[in-house]
Design a protein around this nucleic acid. Structure first.
Lengths: 185, 185
DNA sequence: CCACTGCGTTCGTCAACACGAACGATCGAC
DNA sequence: GTCGATCGTTCGTGTTGACGAACGCAGTGG
């Protein structure tokens, strides 16, 4: 069961790191979280497979999102020039979405650069439940949002909507560009 | 111990929902995750406080990000017109960052619209460890990235870098605009 | 009608998680 | 130096999670 996916060791590390960051002592943190010091000690030493309730209490006491305690981070500087990067062209050539940042393997948040031309709107089938999309228009004008109730955006405008419902991106001017953040809540 | 923050009941719900979505039977999912059917049954019925290892195995088997099983989602359509929204102006008036989407209360991911004028670069002090920033340039030109090694961006270009190190945003043309995603890994 | 298969639940049993208490170590005050 | 306090660890105990087996049900085909 020593799968690399098993975050037990990572939990130990991040737990200790976050505690150090807040300057709390082990005993103090245990007191605030309402758990035994011994339990926390063993967790930080890498031994043990905590229950959700225990780990949740620690997350609350540390004021740290739960996921940060179990899922590894991901750093690095990366540059993608316009036109580079994997392009997810639509069937029609007047809509191009370029993947700027994808979170493998189970996506949590993807960032796309979308360029589109006026014409037939780009209808998107609903994604997985819990997906939220954010769109910031860079240039041009576009009708964006839920298919039932789209919103017209000008440069600098922003809209977000649940991605698990039918939604649309329709350019109203040539060379319309936008940044799309697809977030896996 | 019946804290409202305790996601035990939410886990039960989302667990069952995700399983239904994939069309797997309870027994089949338990087999793939390598856990006992009885365990999964009790979990879905809301009873029990699973260990991290157990819940992780289920997340893998369901191909669902871990956080989705324990943290409630957050939907809704929201529009922020250019110029609206809370603005985080710098000391100098030639740099304005507008908050488009913040994830309360413990930020996981924030989206800003940045508009800047040429002049003194906007130096940012390092944020918390694990923060990653993504920048997509909309209009103008700018020098963006780590202070040590910034990158010149043209419209449509993209760069990401660790936010826990000193970084900079320096406009090279008037009315330079960019979308900035600050991600709390 | 009766095996037979797969579903989801319930029931004992065992392992392990969480707990409290005691420990040595370190630091500061008297 | 000697208390006292706090730190982080280790040990023994009981509470609970995870397991396997057996159960009742429903659908199938012999």
């Amino acid at each position: 069961m020593s799968q690399p996916g098993a975050p037990l060791s990572f939990i130990a590390a991040s737990l200790q790191r976050e505690r150090r960051r807040t300057g709390l002592s082990l005993a103090e943190l245990a007191r605030r979280a309402g758990i035994a010091k011994s339990t926390l000690s063993q967790l930080e030493s890498g031994a043990g497979n905590p229950s959700v309730e225990t780990l949740w209490a620690l997350g609350v006491a540390l004021d740290v999102p739960f996921a940060q305690l179990v899922e590894p981070p991901r750093p690095r500087v990366q540059v993608i020039r316009k036109g580079e990067g994997p392009a997810l062209a639509s069937e029609r050539a007047d809509y191009v979405a370029t993947v700027l940042s994808a979170s493998p393997p189970n996506a949590r948040r993807d960032i796309y650069l979308v360029t589109a031309q006026p014409g037939e709107p780009r209808e998107s089938d609903p994604h997985m439940p819990g997906v939220v999309e954010h769109v910031v228009l860079s240039t041009g004008r576009a009708l964006v949002g839920l298919t039932d109730d789209p919103v017209e955006l000008a440069p600098g405008d922003y809209v977000s909507y649940p991605g698990d419902r039918p939604h649309v991106f329709r350019a109203l001017e040539p060379d319309t560009a936008a940044v799309l953040v697809s977030e896996h809540v």
